[in-house]
Protein backbone atom coordinates (compact mmCIF):
# COMPACT_ATOMS: atom_id res chain seq x y z
CA UNK A 1 0.00 0.00 0.00
CA UNK A 2 1.68 3.19 -1.08
CA UNK A 3 0.32 6.49 0.17
CA UNK A 4 0.08 9.08 -2.54
CA UNK A 5 0.04 12.67 -1.50
CA UNK A 6 -3.53 13.71 -0.73
CA UNK A 7 -4.50 17.10 -2.09
CA UNK A 8 -7.07 18.50 0.33
CA UNK A 9 -9.53 21.04 -1.02
CA UNK A 10 -9.64 24.47 0.65
CA UNK A 11 -12.75 24.98 2.73
CA UNK A 12 -14.10 28.00 0.90
CA UNK A 13 -14.61 25.89 -2.19
CA UNK A 14 -16.67 23.36 -0.28
CA UNK A 15 -18.96 25.59 1.77
CA UNK A 16 -21.84 27.58 0.34
CA UNK A 17 -23.94 30.47 1.61
CA UNK A 18 -27.70 30.13 2.11
CA UNK A 19 -30.15 32.65 0.69
CA UNK A 20 -33.88 33.16 0.29
CA UNK A 21 -33.92 34.64 -3.19
CA UNK A 22 -31.84 32.20 -5.20
CA UNK A 23 -34.44 29.38 -5.27
CA UNK A 24 -36.77 31.64 -7.26
CA UNK A 25 -34.36 31.41 -10.21
CA UNK A 26 -35.42 27.84 -10.79
CA UNK A 27 -38.83 28.97 -12.05
CA UNK A 28 -37.31 29.60 -15.47
CA UNK A 29 -38.05 26.00 -16.43
CA UNK A 30 -41.74 26.83 -16.58
CA UNK A 31 -41.19 28.21 -20.05
CA UNK A 32 -38.95 25.51 -21.50
CA UNK A 33 -39.85 22.28 -23.20
CA UNK A 34 -40.25 19.25 -20.93
CA UNK A 35 -37.63 16.55 -20.96
CA UNK A 36 -39.97 13.55 -20.89
CA UNK A 37 -41.49 11.99 -24.00
CA UNK A 38 -44.96 10.53 -24.32
CA UNK A 39 -44.21 6.87 -24.84
CA UNK A 40 -47.15 5.28 -26.67
CA UNK A 41 -47.17 8.07 -29.24
CA UNK A 42 -43.44 8.62 -29.65
CA UNK A 43 -40.67 6.04 -29.63
CA UNK A 44 -37.35 5.70 -27.89
CA UNK A 45 -34.12 4.70 -29.56
CA UNK A 46 -32.76 1.30 -28.64
CA UNK A 47 -29.03 0.74 -29.02
CA UNK A 48 -27.84 -1.56 -31.78
CA UNK A 49 -26.35 -4.26 -29.62
CA UNK A 50 -28.88 -4.25 -26.83
CA UNK A 51 -29.01 -7.62 -25.07
CA UNK A 52 -32.38 -9.06 -26.00
CA UNK A 53 -33.82 -12.32 -27.26
CA UNK A 54 -31.75 -15.17 -28.71
CA UNK A 55 -31.42 -16.65 -32.19
CA UNK A 56 -30.04 -20.08 -33.00
CA UNK A 57 -28.52 -21.42 -36.18
CA UNK A 58 -29.82 -25.00 -36.23
CA UNK A 59 -27.20 -26.23 -38.67
CA UNK A 60 -24.07 -25.20 -36.79
CA UNK A 61 -25.20 -25.97 -33.23
CA UNK A 62 -23.27 -29.03 -32.07
CA UNK A 63 -25.07 -29.58 -28.79
CA UNK A 64 -22.00 -29.30 -26.55
CA UNK A 65 -23.95 -27.75 -23.63
CA UNK A 66 -21.36 -25.03 -22.97
CA UNK A 67 -24.23 -22.55 -22.84
CA UNK A 68 -26.06 -24.69 -20.30
CA UNK A 69 -23.05 -24.96 -18.03
CA UNK A 70 -22.31 -21.28 -17.93
CA UNK A 71 -25.83 -19.95 -17.53
CA UNK A 72 -26.00 -18.29 -14.07
CA UNK A 73 -29.73 -18.86 -13.74
CA UNK A 74 -29.88 -22.46 -15.08
CA UNK A 75 -32.30 -21.36 -17.77
CA UNK A 76 -31.00 -23.56 -20.62
CA UNK A 77 -32.05 -27.15 -21.13
CA UNK A 78 -30.91 -29.35 -24.00
CA UNK A 79 -33.70 -30.76 -26.12
CA UNK A 80 -33.52 -33.75 -28.46
CA UNK A 81 -35.39 -33.05 -31.68
CA UNK A 82 -36.36 -35.56 -34.31
CA UNK A 83 -34.27 -35.16 -37.43
CA UNK A 84 -31.36 -33.36 -35.76
CA UNK A 85 -28.26 -35.27 -34.77
CA UNK A 86 -27.40 -33.22 -31.70
CA UNK A 87 -29.57 -31.59 -29.05
CA UNK A 88 -30.43 -27.92 -29.14
CA UNK A 89 -30.79 -25.50 -26.20
CA UNK A 90 -34.21 -24.48 -24.97
CA UNK A 91 -34.25 -21.19 -23.11
CA UNK A 92 -36.68 -20.24 -20.36
CA UNK A 93 -37.21 -16.49 -20.19
CA UNK A 94 -38.72 -16.70 -16.76
CA UNK A 95 -35.22 -17.42 -15.46
CA UNK A 96 -32.97 -15.75 -18.02
CA UNK A 97 -31.06 -12.66 -16.87
CA UNK A 98 -30.14 -11.59 -20.42
CA UNK A 99 -26.44 -11.57 -19.62
CA UNK A 100 -25.56 -13.21 -22.98
CA UNK A 101 -22.70 -15.26 -21.53
CA UNK A 102 -24.15 -18.16 -23.53
CA UNK A 103 -23.63 -16.17 -26.72
CA UNK A 104 -20.03 -15.37 -25.78
CA UNK A 105 -19.13 -18.94 -24.93
CA UNK A 106 -20.66 -20.79 -27.90
CA UNK A 107 -17.71 -22.36 -29.77
CA UNK A 108 -19.35 -22.34 -33.21
CA UNK A 109 -21.14 -18.99 -32.87
CA UNK A 110 -24.47 -20.65 -33.40
CA UNK A 111 -26.27 -18.76 -30.63
CA UNK A 112 -26.75 -15.08 -31.28
CA UNK A 113 -28.91 -12.23 -30.05
CA UNK A 114 -31.11 -9.48 -31.44
CA UNK A 115 -32.18 -6.26 -29.76
CA UNK A 116 -35.87 -7.17 -29.48
CA UNK A 117 -37.05 -7.25 -25.93
CA UNK A 118 -40.82 -6.81 -25.53
CA UNK A 119 -42.70 -9.85 -24.30
CA UNK A 120 -45.84 -9.08 -22.35
CA UNK A 121 -48.62 -11.48 -21.48
CA UNK A 122 -51.94 -11.34 -19.76
CA UNK A 123 -51.57 -14.28 -17.41
CA UNK A 124 -53.48 -16.64 -19.60
CA UNK A 125 -52.08 -20.16 -19.49
CA UNK A 126 -51.44 -20.50 -23.20
CA UNK A 127 -49.54 -17.22 -23.27
CA UNK A 128 -47.18 -18.32 -20.52
CA UNK A 129 -45.94 -21.09 -22.81
CA UNK A 130 -44.26 -18.40 -24.92
CA UNK A 131 -41.59 -17.96 -22.28
CA UNK A 132 -40.05 -21.34 -22.96
CA UNK A 133 -38.76 -21.84 -26.51
CA UNK A 134 -35.97 -23.16 -28.67
CA UNK A 135 -34.64 -20.10 -30.49
CA UNK A 136 -35.32 -19.80 -34.19
CA UNK A 137 -32.78 -18.94 -36.91
CA UNK A 138 -31.93 -15.29 -37.28
CA UNK A 139 -33.66 -14.51 -40.53
CA UNK A 140 -36.97 -15.63 -39.10
CA UNK A 141 -36.64 -13.36 -36.05
CA UNK A 142 -35.33 -10.21 -37.68
CA UNK A 143 -38.37 -9.77 -39.88
CA UNK A 144 -40.32 -8.09 -37.09
CA UNK A 145 -38.94 -4.66 -36.43
CA UNK A 146 -41.07 -3.41 -33.56
CA UNK A 147 -39.05 -5.04 -30.80
CA UNK A 148 -41.61 -7.67 -29.88
CA UNK A 149 -41.23 -11.41 -29.52
CA UNK A 150 -41.57 -13.19 -32.87
CA UNK A 151 -43.97 -15.89 -31.72
CA UNK A 152 -47.69 -15.50 -31.32
CA UNK A 153 -48.54 -18.94 -30.02
CA UNK A 154 -47.00 -22.28 -29.17
CA UNK A 155 -49.17 -25.32 -29.61
CA UNK A 156 -48.22 -28.58 -27.98
CA UNK A 157 -49.64 -31.91 -29.01
CA UNK A 158 -49.85 -35.19 -27.21
CA UNK A 159 -47.17 -37.14 -29.07
CA UNK A 160 -44.47 -34.52 -28.44
CA UNK A 161 -44.95 -32.42 -31.55
CA UNK A 162 -44.65 -28.69 -31.02
CA UNK A 163 -45.80 -26.04 -33.45
CA UNK A 164 -44.54 -22.48 -33.30
CA UNK A 165 -46.93 -19.99 -34.86
CA UNK A 166 -45.11 -16.77 -35.73
CA UNK A 167 -46.80 -13.41 -35.73
CA UNK A 168 -47.03 -13.15 -39.47
CA UNK A 169 -48.82 -16.48 -39.79
CA UNK A 170 -45.98 -18.79 -40.83
CA UNK A 171 -45.52 -21.97 -38.86
CA UNK A 172 -42.58 -23.97 -37.73
CA UNK A 173 -43.05 -27.48 -36.53
CA UNK A 174 -40.82 -30.11 -35.00
CA UNK A 175 -41.03 -33.04 -32.66
CA UNK A 176 -39.40 -33.28 -29.26
CA UNK A 177 -38.06 -36.65 -28.27
CA UNK A 178 -36.68 -35.89 -24.85
CA UNK A 179 -34.77 -33.50 -22.63
CA UNK A 180 -31.42 -33.66 -20.94
CA UNK A 181 -27.92 -34.57 -21.92
CA UNK A 182 -28.32 -38.28 -22.48
CA UNK A 183 -30.05 -39.19 -25.73
CA UNK A 184 -33.37 -41.02 -25.59
CA UNK A 185 -33.25 -44.82 -25.60
CA UNK A 186 -33.03 -45.07 -29.37
CA UNK A 187 -29.45 -43.80 -29.70
CA UNK A 188 -26.48 -45.26 -27.87
CA UNK A 189 -25.22 -43.22 -24.92
CA UNK A 190 -22.60 -40.73 -26.05
CA UNK A 191 -20.27 -39.18 -23.44
CA UNK A 192 -22.01 -36.01 -22.45
CA UNK A 193 -20.00 -32.81 -22.04
CA UNK A 194 -17.87 -32.80 -18.90
CA UNK A 195 -19.69 -30.87 -16.22
CA UNK A 196 -18.03 -30.44 -12.88
CA UNK A 197 -20.87 -28.63 -11.12
CA UNK A 198 -23.71 -30.29 -9.31
CA UNK A 199 -27.19 -29.73 -10.70
CA UNK A 200 -28.96 -30.01 -7.39
CA UNK A 201 -32.58 -29.30 -8.23
CA UNK A 202 -34.13 -31.38 -11.02
CA UNK A 203 -35.07 -29.33 -14.03
CA UNK A 204 -38.82 -28.97 -14.25
CA UNK A 205 -40.37 -30.92 -17.04
CA UNK A 206 -37.45 -33.28 -17.54
CA UNK A 207 -38.59 -36.47 -19.20
CA UNK A 208 -35.98 -39.19 -19.39
CA UNK A 209 -36.99 -42.18 -21.43
Amino acid sequence: MKMESVKIAPEEKVRKKPSFLKPWMSLKYLFKKPVTIKIPYEETQIAEKYRGFHTLNWKTCIGCNMCGQICPARAIEMTWIEGEKRPHPKIDYGRCTFCQFCVDVCPTNALGHVEHYILTTEWKDEELELFDWVPLPEEMVRKFSDYRHPLAKIEKYEDGRVKYVLRDGSEFEFKILGYGLKPPAAAKPKPAAKSAEKKEEPNPGEKKE
Binding site: S26, L27, Y29, L30, K32, P34, V35, T36, K38
Partner: peptide, 11 residues
Protein backbone atom coordinates in the same frame (compact mmCIF):
# COMPACT_ATOMS: atom_id res chain seq x y z
CA UNK B 1 -49.68 20.79 -14.34
CA UNK B 2 -47.78 23.93 -13.28
CA UNK B 3 -45.76 21.92 -10.76
CA UNK B 4 -45.01 19.32 -13.42
CA UNK B 5 -43.70 21.93 -15.85
CA UNK B 6 -41.37 23.30 -13.20
CA UNK B 7 -40.13 19.72 -12.75
CA UNK B 8 -39.54 19.56 -16.54
CA UNK B 9 -42.19 16.88 -16.99
CA UNK B 10 -45.28 16.94 -19.19
CA UNK B 11 -47.90 16.62 -16.47
Amino acid sequence: IVTARIHRRVG
